[in-house]
Nucleic acid binder design. Structure first.
Lengths: 244, 244
DNA sequence: CAGTGGTCTAGACCACTTG
DNA sequence: AAGTGGTCTAGACCACTGC
């Protein structure tokens, strides 16, 4: 009934689930699988593509196909502000930041509508300081962080602005007297496009977790907008909600 | 430099981004694309697979390949307890529940370690009431919800237990005097396996959002564990964090 | 029925990794 | 050099959709 490539990928999937192939193990080569199942190479490749699509294996040209190791690092959203550095250290993970871009630009309409309210709109302060940072966990790029700060906010940081390039944004804002009252956020799931695929070293279409957040000061004015795009296979978010 | 199928999928991707093909539109047939790009069918199919992997199009046997419509419904995590029904209504979405399974079982070790503390362990009350429910949003299955209630809790609901099969769990617990103090949760991202692929009518490997939550009573004892597995292309989670 | 995508084959050549 | 996966071709047949 089911197609050949599905039967084969299911067979391999169960073998992986049963521990016949352990995380890190190499699967038999395509040639070996062709003989074992008596099918063409196309069919074997389709079966392996199914497994890759399910995140169970990954293939490497010239080397082979290997069972994925899966262990996720959690970002905590419970402490109202994310202090990623501390968070990672607590889980025994090293954490470094690589700056990819730091410029003053005129943002897209979408970002403008988030950062500029009708009050501030007339003032023509519509430039923002954009930063793209690669977050490396245990030496491997795991997430891409894009932060947009209104020009006024960025200016008030003075020369500390450069510190932003190698650290997370919120702690630095607070340290410079810019109070954060609350953060409104959305967590969703997307696929890697070619650009992100390159930065995070994942195949096209790889699942990603996206955390979009807007920070507001006590006057309800937005002071920062950011997106953190993480590899869905390596990260998750934890939070606690109290009934109060 | 780049492979043919990548060039072609990138070409189509930009056409979609530029609105040449609008959401809902049909792409040219594989045969037409073969002629347009002067390549074999395999290469065209690979290019289309790239687009499917990026969630940009979906294909339907006998009909064609269509540009994906994307609009997400948000679950709110801000109100400490999720009242999904109300939440959906507010966004103008209809919401129904289909029960797939409701039984008393002995759960996996993983679930046991969540629901049973060292105190309760000796009591041999290790059975749980498991429920699998399909959540239909606007008439289409969008999420699979699995809830585990310790036998003691389920029993105290009496005949209202059956109400659970067509509604969300937490509101019913509270209505029956079972207080929820806090919820500890994890949000992550996975791929559809064959079972879920069937329930949610998505291709194998389709990205999914998983919300795992454990509810505790004021005595810090777990009273429910659940997983809500939603289509990553149709849902997202929103939350607000206050600096207090 | 014609047109669409889904499965499968056999074979060729290329790119990368390892010894 | 041998073995691995990556790309690509040409062609066949099947399954589903819609007219």
């Amino acid at each position: 009934m089911a197609s050949l490539h599905i039967s084969i990928s299911e067979h391999l999937r169960h073998q992986i689930a049963d521990g016949v192939y352990q995380p890190g193990d190499q699967l038999p080569s395509e040639h070996q699988l062709m003989e074992e199942f008596g099918v063409s190479r196309t069919t074997i490749r389709q079966a392996i593509a199914n497994l890759i699509g399910q995140g169970l294996v990954s293939s490497h040209q010239g080397k082979g196909v290997f069972v994925t190791k899966r262990q996720k690092v959690a970002y905590s959203l419970s402490s109202p502000l994310v202090f990623l550095e501390d968070d990672m250290a607590r889980q025994g993970a090293s954490f470094t930041v690589t700056s990819l871009m730091a410029e003053l630009i005129t943002p897209s309409a979408a970002v403008q509508s988030i950062l500029f309210t009708s009050e501030t709109k007339g003032q023509k302060n519509t430039k923002v300081y954009i930063q793209k940072k690669l977050l490396n966990i245990n030496g491997i790029p795991g997430a891409l962080d894009i932060t947009y700060l209104p020009q006024a906010i960025a200016r008030s940081l003075g020369s500390a602005k450069h510190t932003l390039q190698h650290h997370m944004t919120f702690p630095i804002l607070e340290r410079h007297g810019i109070a954060i009252d609350h953060i409104s956020a959305i967590l969703e799931c997307t696929h890697a496009d070619p650009e992100i695929s390159q930065y995070l070293d994942v195949p096209l279409g790889h699942p990603l977790l996206v955390y979009r957040h807007t920070a507001y000061n006590p006057n309800q004015q937005p002071i920062a907008y950011g997106e953190t795009i993480s590899r869905g296979d390596r990260f998750c978010y934890s939070l606690t909600m109290s009934r109060a």
